[in-house]
Design a protein around this nucleic acid. Structure first.
Length: 564
RNA sequence: GGGCUCGUGGCUUAGCUUGGAUAUAGCGCCGGGCUUCUAACCCGGAUGUCGAGGGUUCGAAUCCCUCCGGGCCCGCCA
């Protein structure tokens, strides 16, 4: 709805400017607290026409013609600014549209296949709090893009050819695998022990090299060892992801591109470009002219491939299947991903869009699976769930234990996801236990609670036999009602912006603001106790709020509870 | 040393791509509100040299330059 309003303002403003004799492409629309949408177009035209912004604004304003059933109520001049306000018609249609579209409200009409890769953590241990920043950003973005209309496939790229997996395989032969532990944690234990022993007793290192070599050329016995080790770790990782409402459509093993010859073909293609030079027996690509000083090694002197070579083959394979590729990567991949893009550009292949997120560190420093220094996602989820259970016991002593546990579960997952997604990916963060388990801040539970309140009103209305199949939206005149409807109308605009800019945090902020608008309405405007004609319209508005809150929460991958 | 990035009230944070009207919100702090649809709520108040300095502009948190501080990267690792 808001997008239509914006389009209408845009076209009416353009034609008014044209009639007034100004040529302009950009009508400079901006969100403003002074209006539903404002334009500073007069400032932009001032230098060109050598007249004051105010004078230009007056001339444009005079020529604004608003048609009868418009979504625009009026345009007002405020000095050099032009302020536009939504009409009653707009508000009414928003309410009706939400009720009509229900769970599809906010869906957009973009088309095309998108392959979005996220998480892709090495299967050498459990996901830690840094990995799940990747997972949550990726999963939320996938949900946003789906709502924006794209056909999204999510992929987890398994780096099975790296040295760390060879270390795990070697470790499994030499250390005890603790069957009582969750599988990914047991793998981590083996991995940590193996690394320690490789550092202390250097003579084992060649054993790992031999395992790696065997896997590169592939022999049945070695392949089976790798598969078993990776499957074991992935089983635990998938369990954690599932707990967080995160699902991958496909898991792609990097070794497949070596086995099927794609990696070799990739190396040949790069050689054919004439940009690759052999230095000390290794094949290097010079990327200086693409603004990257560091040359990229494509092939080792022993003829084997490297991570980036395999990643290039992976991207070539992906590119053939979709219109857009999106990769969610940690800050340590900045250089390597720009090298990857540069090579793809040289080969005239489609490049991925890359979302980089900064690191999550511990107060004592950075995390490392290898050294065993990390907070696992499981541990975080467990602790937050414990804290949530304490909170439910305090707030809902009237309910049974099953209910409390269920609430603690979705509240904790929501809180963890929301806490991650609310901050911009480019911000480096330091993990803090006290903050992680704090439910006082306005996070996911605040939004979930608003949804539960809306459901509660609807439930009570049904019990009382109050219907709202027919109602007159024109009676929704309270300040809080109008603010709430405007907020509801903005959902599609947020999906549009978040999908366009690949910024999931925009949705997190919106959901909180919507809950805020609903809570204010809830506090000031009685629904069930109102006169019948008001009651029906307000119930409809509560239903709208319930729907959009649920849609926003669903897009954030957070449960929208009917009760909590 | 070079490259990239971040720096906004005590803490966390929005806005920066595309410059514009009193800089966003939460936590914490101070004060108020449950005979009313779930108080995980609502209302009010105090708190800011938008890291520092310079520049561009009618106008800079936003663009440019220099510097300071944090993070990440700079391997025939992944």
């Amino acid at each position: 709805m808001f997008l239509k309003f914006k389009d209408e303002v845009s076209s009416i403003l353009s034609s008014a400017a044209a009639i007034a004799g100004f040529e302009t492409e950009d009508v400079a629309l901006t969100e403003s607290s002074h209006a539903d949408i404002a334009s500073s177009v007069a400032f932009k035209l001032a230098p060109k026409y050598k007249r004051s912004p105010k004078e230009i604004c007056e001339n444009i304003c005079k020529n604004i013609k608003i048609p009868p059933d418009s979504y625009i109520d009026r345009a007002e001049m405020a000095g050099p600014y032009l302020n536009f306000f939504v009409s009653r018609n707009f508000l009414n249609e928003t309410v009706l549209r939400v009720l009509l579209d229900r769970e599809n409200f906010g869906n957009l009409n973009n088309r095309g296949k998108v392959i979005l890769e996220h998480t892709s953590a090495n299967p050498d241990g459990p996901l830690h709090i840094g990995h799940i920043r990747n997972s949550v950003i990726g999963d939320t973005l996938a949900r946003i893009l789906k709502r924006a209309g794209y056909d999204v496939e999510t992929q987890y790229y398994i780096n099975d050819m790296g040295r760390q997996i060879a270390v795990v395989v070697w470790g499994l032969l030499n250390f005890k695998f603790d069957k009582t532990k969750k599988k990914d944690h047991a793998i981590a234990e083996v991995y940590i022990n193996a690394n320690k022993s490789l550092v202390d007793e250097k003579e084992h290192s060649p054993e790992v090299d031999a395992i790696m070599k065997k896997y590169e050329i592939s022999d049945a016995a070695t392949d089976k060892k790798f598969k078993d080790a990776i499957d074991t770790a992935m089983e635990g990782i998938k369990e954690t992801l599932k707990r967080m409402n995160i699902h991958h459509d496909r898991f792609i093993w990097e070794s497949q591109f070596v086995r099927n010859g794609e990696v070799n073909r990739m190396m040949e293609r790069i050689k054919e470009t004439g940009r690759a030079a052999i230095k000390d027996g290794a094949l290097m690509v010079d990327l200086n002219d693409m603004g990257i000083q560091k040359p990229l090694v494509i092939q080792r002197s022993d003829g084997t491939s490297l991570y980036t070579t395999r990643d290039l083959a992976y991207h070539e394979w992906k590119a053939a299947q979709c219109e857009r590729m999106i990769d969610i990567l940690g800050a340590d991949h900045k250089l390597i991903s720009s090298q990857l893009k540069a090579v793809l550009r040289i080969l005239k292949l489609n490049e991925p869009e890359i979302v980089i997120f900064e690191f999550v560190s511990l107060p004592e420093g950075s995390m490392s699976t290898r050294r065993g220094v990390f907070v696992s996602a499981d541990e975080l989820l467990d602790e937050v769930e414990k804290a949530a259970l304490l909170e439910v016991r305090k707030k809902r002593p009237d309910t049974d234990e099953d209910f409390k546990k269920k609430v603690a579960s979705f509240v904790s997952i929501g809180a963890v996801r929301y806490d991650i997604v609310r901050v911009s990916p480019e911000k480096a963060t330091t993990f803090n236990w006290a903050e992680a388990v704090d439910f006082e801040k306005q996070g996911a539970p605040f939004i979930q609670y608003a949804h539960a309140r809306a459901c509660s009103i609807i439930r009570n209305a049904h019990e009382e036999g109050f219907a709202f199949e027919t109602f007159d939206p024109n009676v929704l005149l309270e300040e809080q009602e109008i603010a709430l409807i405007k907020k509801l109308s903005g959902f599609e605009n947020v999906i549009d912006n978040a999908a366009r800019e690949l910024k999931p945090n925009l949705l997190a902020i919106y959901a909180r603001e919507l809950a805020d608008a609903f809570n204010q309405f809830y506090r000031y405007v009685p629904v069930l106790a109102a006169e019948p004609e008001f009651r029906a319209a307000r119930l409809a508005l509560v239903d709208c709020s319930r729907i959009v809150l649920a849609n926003a929460l669903d897009t954030l991958g957070i449960t929208a509870p009917e009760s909590m």
